[in-house]
Nucleic acid binder design. Structure first.
Length: 266
DNA sequence: ATGACTACTCCCAGTAGA
């Protein structure tokens, strides 16, 4: 079972690269962020033709998330609990059935939060608290659970090529990192970090100032696993070569393999 | 260095991203 996350920065601009990458990496479940379109404008038929079930939670212009799955969804649910006045399309949960039981995947696009000290930062921190509450509820189910998406959090100095450039940024402020640690301490494993202590595991390079050419990257796209998922982890990967393709997103896909004992990659 | 680049939008200068 291969599960991937990718912030595509407009699915309509990225559809050709998305199709190429789906064929190359053949993930079973994909979490997409920043699709930047309403549900009806999502290129669902092309993706369905590759054998995926598609669930979309979009909005006009900004944000928007989607789930693709080769396994049929038992359930999909948009929106993160606790935000009655939150109109941003940033969260979509899906459940599929494995022989051993349910597998739950939450696709999320956590707010950027810049500039620090603004209403946007307050919104980010409140959103993280809602995510912590959601996680503590779901962990009670004692199921395989994967939180996958663009967290807009640099967890640690080794997750940035130039950490000093980010010290006043909403992605790296102490309060942001404290919320992320609280999320992990609730019982989640950062899959990429479970597999490697290396630096240079970046998932985002800015379009500006030659960031890609200088490898001035940060690691902000994550897959966080419940114990029942982490016990099945066999591989992780970051498809950084996709950043070098023509007309790339500024983020690249990140993926994990989970062993459920009977699917095609186990 | 008030920058740089990309994508969006009642179409094109302003907003957002990170």
């Amino acid at each position: 079972m291969r599960i991937a996350t990718w912030n595509v920065n407009s699915v309509r601009q990225r559809i050709d690269l998305l199709m190429t990458w789906l064929k190359e990496r053949s993930p079973d479940i994909v979490c997409l962020q920043e699709i930047k379109c309403v549900d009806d404008a999502f290129p669902r038929f092309e993706i369905e033709a590759l054998g995926y079930n598609v669930a979309v939670h979009g909005q006009k212009t900004f944000n928007g998330v989607a789930l693709l799955s080769k396994y049929p969804f038992d359930e999909t649910r948009p929106r993160l609990a606790g935000g009655d006045d939150d109109s941003h399309a940033r969260f979509l949960e899906g459940v599929v059935s494995m022989p051993s039981g349910a597998l739950r995947v939450a696709c999320l696009y956590l707010p950027n939060g810049n500039p620090a000290g603004s209403d946007k930062y307050t919104y980010k921190i409140n959103w993280m608290k809602r995510l912590i509450n959601y996680t503590s509820e779901r962990l009670k189910l004692e199921e395989p659970l994967v939180l996958a998406g663009d967290f807009n959090v640099i967890p640690d100095a080794r997750d940035a090529r130039n950490p000093n450039a980010w010290v006043n940024d909403a992605l790296f402020l102490p309060q942001t990192r404290a919320c992320f640690r609280e999320l992990l301490h609730g019982g989640l494993t950062d899959a990429v970090r479970a597999a490697s202590d290396a630096g240079d595991l970046y998932t985002f390079w800015d379009y500006q100032a030659g960031a890609w050419q200088k490898n001035d990257g940060i690691r902000i796209d994550h897959l966080l696993l419940s114990a029942q998922a982490a016990d099945r982890l066999t591989a992780t990967g970051i498809d950084r070569h996709v950043r070098g393709w023509e007309k790339p997103s500024d983020h690249v896909p990140v993926w994990i393999d989970l062993d459920f004992g009977s699917s095609r990659r186990d």
